[in-house]
C-alpha cells in the first residue's frame, strides 16, 4: 500500500504493508537510521519518535496509523528550541556511554519539555521510565533534562 507521510517537515511517499511499523519505514525505506531498534515490543524506548508532537514507540506504530500527523525524528529534533537545548545539555554533561539509547531518550525528553517546560523530577522519571539505558546513564539524563529546563542539573552523588 502507498502511504503519504510527513517526516521531518518533508512529504514522503512510501510503499509498505499497512502493518509495517514506522520504525522500519524510517530506518530501511527512508534511510533515517538515527531512530534505533532495541526490542521490537515497545519495552526499551530506543525507537521513540514524535508523532503529532507526542512521543511514540515507532516499533509499535503501524505505518497505516501514522496518518497526517507530523513525524519528527532525532535527525530533526534539534530544529526545535527544546530539542536544541536538550542536545546542548546532553553534550555539556556528556550523557552517552555507548550512546545507542540516547536518540530515544532525547525524543522522550523533548516531548516532555515541549508539553511541560519545567517538569518536577518525578515527572521526568515518569516520562522517561520507558527508555532503557543499558549503560546506566540515568543520572546524567535527569541532570541534562533539568539543565535544559533550567531547573537544576545537580549530580546525584
Amino acid at each position: 500500500m502507498k502511504f503519504d507521510l510527513t517526516v521531518n517537515g518533508r512529504k514522503r511517499t512510501v510503499e509498505a504493508p499497512a502493518e509495517m511499523p514506522l520504525l522500519w519505514v524510517l530506518r530501511d525505506e527512508l534511510g533515517l537510521v538515527g531512530t534505533k531498534f532495541g526490542c521490537g515490543i515497545g519495552m526499551c524506548g530506543a525507537c521513540t519518535v514524535h508523532l503529532g508532537g507526542k512521543a511514540v514507540r515507532s516499533c509499535q506504530t503501524p505505518v497505516s496509523e501514522v496518518g497526517k500527523g507530523a513525524v519528527v525524528t532525532i535527525e530533526q529534533v534539534g530544529a526545535s528550541a527544546v530539542g536544541a537545548k536538550l542536545q546542548k545539555a546532553w553534550t555539556e554533561l556528556d550523557v552517552p556511554q555507548c550512546g545507542y539509547c540516547q536518540a530515544g531518550q532525547l525524543m522522550s525528553a523533548s516531548a516532555l519539555l515541549a508539553q511541560k517546560p519545567k517538569p518536577a523530577r518525578e515527572e521526568i522519571a515518569e516520562a522517561m521510565n520507558g527508555n532503557i539505558c543499558r549503560c546506566g546513564t540515568y543520572d546524567r539524563i535527569f541532570r541534562a533534562i533539568e539543565l535544559a529546563a533550567g531547573t537544576g542539573g545537580k549530580a546525584n552523588g
Partner: peptide, 8 residues
C-alpha cells in the same frame, strides 16, 4: 562522539 550521537 557525543556531538554526533545526540544528532542521531
Amino acid at each position: 562522539d557525543t556531538p554526533r550521537v545526540v544528532k542521531g
